[in-house]
């Protein structure tokens, strides 16, 4: 049973956000990280040094591995930031300031 059904969720209407221009569906109340997980995405950053993929690690705002660019602002912790209708989420390359 999926977790939404398990908890008897009756979420508000879904809305659309984009990840690197691709539309994905989001539920109100979820964070950016939860939205991306639900869309089957587990990495949305490449490291500054080796360019390795990263996503959620600690899930509670401590590790900063899940940094992402949302609406042009880089270095936001995806596990803390609530998703909003129309958000433009972008994979963050390196520091997020190079592009």
């Amino acid at each position: 049973m999926n977790p939404l059904r398990r908890a008897g969720a009756r979420p508000g209407p879904a809305f659309t956000v984009t990840l690197d221009g691709r539309e994905i569906e989001a539920l109100p109340g979820r964070t950016v990280a939860a939205t991306l997980w639900a869309a089957g995405v587990t990495s949305w950053r490449s490291t500054r040094g080796a360019g390795r993929p990263r996503g959620v690690f600690c899930g509670i705002g401590v590790c900063f591995d899940c940094l992402v660019t949302v609406n042009g602002r880089p270095n936001q912790r995806a596990c803390l930031v609530p998703v909003r209708p129309g958000d433009e989420i972008r994979t963050q390359e390196g520091t997020g300031h190079d592009d």
Binding site: A9, A33, A34, V56, F57, G59, I60, C79
Partner: peptide, 12 residues
């Protein structure tokens, strides 16, 4: 704990 936190709050 992260997997659990995401599950409990985001149901994901």
């Amino acid at each position: 704990g992260g997997a659990q936190a995401m599950l409990k709050e985001g149901l994901v």
